[in-house]
Design a protein around this nucleic acid. Structure first.
Lengths: 178, 178
DNA sequence: GCTACCATACCGACCAGTTGGTTGGTTTTG
DNA sequence: CAAAACCAACCAACTGGTCGGTATGGTAGC
């Protein structure tokens, strides 16, 4: 059994971005963060791009998992829109679960966000067909993403009490749609 | 009279980010983009941080100007919420006017976004006092920002016809609030 | 007019530190 | 043992920033 696996490296990389900023996400820094030499790190991810891709995939996976959990958990709590809103807010709750890989990736090479872009498109098209008022659904989704990205970029604090109120209000509005 | 002024340098820097990504926003690249030697560039902005700060200030200025124009233009078209929504969409219309300095700055040092953070807080607190339904106002603002940041990060295309529909819908909803 | 002086804009060579990635070898594990 | 995991040393390219110097234009005194 290996001392560190890819998941651990990804978490370490995310931690580096959180502590020192996306610009300082270097192979050396990640290696140091997870107690590995640079050589050892490169053994797992041959290039920095590969690491960034893995970070993004992990982020997408986390979000999808949370959404599916929510959708499976309470049948009457809402459709796909509510699931997405829920998963975003779940990620926002903990400072450490915010996928700052987004910043590092888009700074390195915007093309890396392609998987995210296509997944977003898929979610949007789903809402267009399942919701009674697709426009409003997209607006609510955008609102959640606005708060989410605001948190990721660090221009929003989540300790503001208004945050939770917006969360419940969003879910309530979403419940009337899907 | 100088051949290049600070405004031109800022535009050149924004162009570099647009073409090559935030990570490639280097003093050399900016100097080359505006036909200046690195020495000449550093003469105008002593450090890269100073350049980034100026880029952010310029972005804030642009947005504020657009919002004030709109507010002054049509008295009945809406209050501060509508003005903000309008200014964001105005910036989104043109690929070149998207302030990608945001990405470069947050990657370099998240603390650089402090001016933006405090301005956002100011806008929010204004909405809290002037709107009949502050929660909904914040949601609409967040929706606009979600679309805006989606465009800045490049995960959203503006050529989608749904975009304009969301714009008008947002303004309509905003009109009922402030 | 001419000189001496100064400030601004700009250049391009240079430097120290950083970065992504390679290589050749060692340890660990199944 | 063979493969996988890992390491230390190294390298070439890049990066932010410095430095000494040039070109230009204004201006004060004579």
């Amino acid at each position: 059994m290996s001392k560190v696996d890819k998941e651990a490296i990804i978490r370490a990389a995310e931690e580096v971005v959180r502590e020192k900023g996306a610009r300082k996400l270097t192979l050396d820094a990640v290696a140091a963060q997870c107690g590995l030499s640079k050589g050892g790190l490169v053994h797992h991810f041959r290039t920095k791009q590969a690491l960034l891709q893995a970070m993004l995939e992990s982020a997408i996976g986390c979000e999808t998992e949370l959404a599916e959990e929510y959708a499976a958990g309470g049948g009457e709590t809402g459709g796909p829109l509510a699931s997405r809103i829920h998963s975003m807010f779940a990620l926002m709750e903990d400072e450490k679960s915010l996928p700052r890989a987004l910043i590092a990736a888009v700074a390195e090479d915007p093309a890396l966000l392609e998987p995210i872009k296509s997944k977003e498109a898929k979610v949007r098209s789903e809402l267009l067909t399942t919701c009674s008022d697709p426009e409003m659904a997209l607006l609510l989704l955008s609102a959640a993403r606005g708060l989410f990205l605001g948190r990721v970029l660090g221009v929003l604090d989540s300790d503001d009490p208004i945050f939770e109120r917006l969360h419940t209000r969003l879910l309530k509005l979403a419940a009337d749609l899907d």
